[in-house]
């Protein structure tokens, strides 16, 4: 039995793309798909983060678990994560996370020997795998980048020391937020704004101005030449209804009509730096596909039902 296909063919248009930021339009699909992608990006795309810490010496002002927690939150470059194994289903090791398929080892040794306070940063973490290193936030723009900026873990005074071994593992944001590759992922419906030109022309310039001013974000403006109200940036509209209330208050309901196009979305994706924003979206699509595959009915369920179906047909007198 083959049913008819109800497949959709969504369209994508990227507006802006940087390593850690993406803004794109998604069309011809529905909110459930947009939201599923958003949810997967936040909590189910895997990354690598420090998960086990063995402290050898810690005479800093922060206690061991405080430091371990801070280490966990440091984003690590995770291009490898999709092809890595979760340590819980790694066959090569006993799940203690010390094999190359499911873990990466880090070492940190720092001791302050001068009177100057020593900043221990993510730059002091030495990785056993050059593809998995703390994310580098230094601007390549070039203006006076004298000091390499790492993420500060702890500050040491004279004589204080920190020495530890850490194991990073693959994980997902659902397990712990430290594994989430997304800083923020949002989407909004694309607004469609219609101005009733005839009604708008019945307003004085002053009224037009106060109408334009009534929007908390700059959605409308007045054309300096024609003195007409024009939509300058529909996407600045936050669905706050302020302009609609204003039109009502001016005794001109229907002056503007605003709809949310229910099949068009504008996504913004910001990554922590663990993976590129574009890769984050692609990984999310892949993960969602895998999830759908996992919820397919197994053969034995189908067979069991076929037998039941025949029985049911007999009962119905078929």
């Amino acid at each position: 039995m083959e049913g008819i296909s109800y497949q959709r063919f969504p369209k994508v248009k990227i507006r802006e793309l940087k390593d850690d930021y993406a803004k794109f339009e998604l069309r011809d699909t529905d909110a459930s798909m947009a939201n599923a992608l958003r949810r997967v990006m936040i909590s189910e795309v895997p990354t690598i983060a420090i998960d086990l810490v063995e402290i050898e010496v810690n005479s800093s002002v922060l206690n061991d678990e405080f430091i371990a927690h801070r280490l966990g939150l440091i984003p690590l470059t995770s291009e490898r994560a999709m092809s890595m194994r979760f340590s819980r289903d790694c066959d090569a090791c006993d799940g203690d996370g010390q094999c190359e398929f499911c873990s990466v080892e880090f070492h940190l040794r720092a001791k302050c020997i001068s009177d100057q306070t020593l900043d221990v940063t993510s730059k002091d973490l030495y990785s056993s795998d050059h593809t998995v290193v703390p994310v580098d936030f230094t601007d390549n723009a070039g203006y006076d980048s004298t000091e390499p900026r790492g993420i500060i873990i702890v500050k040491l005074r004279r004589g204080q020391e920190l020495r530890l071994r850490a194991i990073a593992r693959k994980g997902i944001g659902k397990d712990h937020a430290k594994w989430s590759p997304a800083a923020t992922v949002t989407f909004m419906y694309e607004p469609e704004i219609h101005i009733n030109e005839d009604l708008m022309e019945s307003l004085t310039l002053e009224e037009k101005l106060s109408f334009v001013e009534s929007s908390p974000t700059k959605v409308f403006d007045i054309d300096p030449n024609t003195q007409q109200v024009v939509v300058v940036d529909p996407e600045a509209y936050t669905y706050d209804d302020e302009v609609l209330k204003k039109a009502e208050a001016m005794g001109k309901p229907g002056l503007v009509e605003i709809y949310a196009k229910e099949d068009s979305f504008i996504f913004t994706v910001e990554s922590t730096g663990a993976i590129k924003a574009s890769q984050l979206v692609l990984n999310a699509i892949e993960i969602l596909k895998q999830k759908l595959d996992a919820v397919r009915l197994s053969e034995d369920t189908v067979e069991a039902d076929d037998q039941f179906g025949e029985l049911g047909a007999h009962m119905r007198g078929g």
Binding site: Y6, I14, I285, L292, D293
Partner: peptide, 27 residues
């Protein structure tokens, strides 16, 4: 119900395939 369920998963799967290609082309 079983047919509808399978069909829904197949359609979503194909939609995601399409989306993936479309996104890769854009990137």
């Amino acid at each position: 119900p079983m047919q509808a369920y399978n069909q829904a998963i197949n359609d979503l799967d194909k939609e995601l395939d399409h989306l993936k290609c479309a996104f890769e082309v854009e990137v």
